[in-house]
Amino acid sequence: MKLRRIFHVNKNAVALTLLRVVLGLTFLFHGWQKMQMGLDNVGGYFVSLGLPSWLAYVVGNLELFGGLLLIVGMLTRYISLAFVVVMIGAVFSAKFGNGFLGAEGKPGFEIDVVLMTIGAFFAITGSTGYSVDAVFKRQSQAVDGHKA
């Protein structure tokens, strides 16, 4: 008997779970970094970009707590969509003028596009793979009489 038959593993579910967790960790660490810098300081940077300072609190908390939610796969579509909006804002408010790969030691927006694309994927597909969302979906289907 093959080991795969004993431990039935869906490779796609594992890969999508890893992708979602890495996206969540990326935003979690960015949110944590903002908290460590102090949201008032981040708000000052936002003001220098022409954005309201209160937006730093929204973005910092969204990145921190939204990252945690993505890691466990909860509210995946909504959090991912919010991250897409944040990345669009980052590109156009802070990085677009630097070019795709950056210029003169300033960061480009290539990684923002990657994060935006992964976020768009999960906003469209939801939390595929192993996640809290999938557990609730299976329970809902079982209650409705659908095959889980």
Rank of each mutant, 00 (worst) to 15 (best):
F27Q: 10
L3W: 14
V47M: 13
D133I: 00
S48Q: 15
H146C: 06
F83R: 09
G99L: 00
V91S: 09
L62F: 07
T125Y: 08
L16N: 08
Q141R: 15
M37Q: 15
I6N: 01
L69W: 07
L75R: 11
G31L: 01
M37W: 06
N10D: 15
H146S: 13
S127K: 02
G38W: 06
P107T: 13
M74E: 01
Y57V: 01
Y130W: 13
Q33R: 12
L75A: 14
P107N: 13
I118K: 03
I88R: 06
M1A: 14
V86K: 13
A56V: 02
A134G: 11
K147F: 01
R5T: 00
G60D: 09
F121M: 13
F46V: 11
S53F: 03
N61V: 01
N41W: 03
L101Q: 11
D112K: 11
Y130F: 14
A13L: 03
T128L: 09
V58S: 06
A13M: 07
Q139L: 15
G60I: 05
Q33K: 10
S80C: 01
L81V: 01
T26H: 00
G129Y: 02
L19A: 15
F83K: 11
A15D: 01
K137Y: 02
G145H: 06
V42M: 04
G108D: 09
A13R: 08
T117F: 12
T17M: 09
V22W: 04
W32S: 12
A82Y: 01
F136S: 10
M35Y: 14
K11T: 10
A103M: 08
G108Q: 12
N98R: 08
E110K: 13
L75S: 08
A56N: 05
W54T: 08
N10I: 07
D40C: 05
F7M: 07
R20W: 05
D40S: 13
I71Y: 09
G66A: 12
G24V: 08
Y45H: 15
A82W: 02
E110R: 14
V14R: 10
E63S: 11
A82P: 06
A103H: 08
N98P: 09
G119Q: 05
L3T: 15
G66V: 05
L62A: 15
Y45S: 13
L64G: 02
Y45C: 06
K2L: 07
V85W: 03
V47C: 08
G108L: 10
A13S: 15
T128G: 12
K106Q: 14
Q33N: 13
V42T: 10
F65M: 08
L16G: 05
V86G: 13
N98K: 10
G105E: 03
L28G: 07
L3P: 08
V21I: 15
G126S: 00
A148G: 01
W54G: 06
S93D: 09
T26R: 00
Q141A: 15
K137F: 03
K95S: 11
E104Y: 13
G145W: 03
W54I: 10
T128E: 12
Y45A: 14
V21Q: 05
L3K: 14
F83W: 05
V91L: 10
S53Y: 05
V132R: 02
L18P: 05
G31E: 02
